[in-house]
Design a protein around this nucleic acid. Structure first.
Ligand SMILES: [Mn+2]
Ligand SMILES: [Mn+2]
Ligand SMILES: [Zn+2]
Ligand SMILES: [Zn+2]
Lengths: 133, 133
DNA sequence: TATTTTAAAGATAAATATTATCCTTTGATA
DNA sequence: TATCAAAGGATAATATTTATCTTTAAAATA
């Protein structure tokens, strides 16, 4: 169990017990939706407000402490910010897994065939996970 | 202006004036959000219900007549289903543009380094469009 | 073409999801 | 320890999406 006090402060976020618990939950579970996170936090803080979850998720995103991952045909999930990576999603069970693939070639190609100045690539691969096959 | 009557029927959708107008709007504008589509449809049908927009978007998605495109930090947009392609999004003006890039190599790599059975890839590239540079 | 059937439209209520507000509590700093 | 800005909790307000019910109309068919 990592102590996220310093990490939160680096992102200009006060290290409250609620935020430490959210950080910890994301560290342990990897990717979580708002509702799942809320349910989990309720077990730790029996009177935590859903508004606290939303306010923190929004603030943490603004400060780049966490990131949103938008998934086809499913609710968004959130994760602690880490080095750029892509995602694998299981259409059967909804499991979201990290995968690191070098997208530089793709980005270069896109730069050549378009007139955009490109600086970010978001890739989500869908399929069936090991467990559901 | 294309007549989408047959195309709608192929997807088991009755060709109502509202649906023809939605199809036409998507054909002309490429990618549209729910609210923008609703505003536009109101000009054509001054009493169209927002529920009609939602019901049609949902039904058209179920029948694969249209597709949803989830965009980082923005609302989803919808487009007529066409051959698989990726998207470019302008962080400045929100413009969404199609771009065709071969993702087979990426998908193959993902198959090798993961245990997923992968069948779909969704790529969104973010940056600044020509106009906003 | 007239009739019948069934799905879709419109109006609107209901349900969900998200944000704002207000007051109390607390983390950070000195 | 005292101060203060920020965060939490409770809850109201908005926003978004879906459900329900009645009317209308598209499509099938006689
Ligand atoms: Mn991830
Ligand atoms: Mn497109
Ligand atoms: Zn699975
Ligand atoms: Zn632009």
């Amino acid at each position: 169990m990592i102590n996220y006090t310093d990490e939160l402060r680096k992102h200009n976020l006060k290290a409250t017990p609620q935020r430490l618990a959210i950080s910890d939950a994301l560290y342990i579970n990897g990717h979580m939706s708002i509702e799942v996170l809320y349910e989990l936090m309720l077990k730790k803080f029996n009177s935590i407000s859903l508004a606290t979850i939303y306010k923190n998720i929004n603030l943490m995103m603004e400060n780049s402490f966490i990131q949103e991952v938008k998934i086809p045909n499913a609710k968004s999930v959130y994760e602690l910010t880490k080095t750029a990576h892509s995602h694998l999603v299981c259409d059967s069970c909804g499991e979201v897994e990290d995968i690191t693939i070098d997208l530089d070639a793709i980005i270069d190609e896109a730069k050549q065939i378009s007139s955009f100045k490109i600086d970010k690539a978001s890739l989500v691969l869908s399929g069936v996970c090991k467990n559901c096959q």
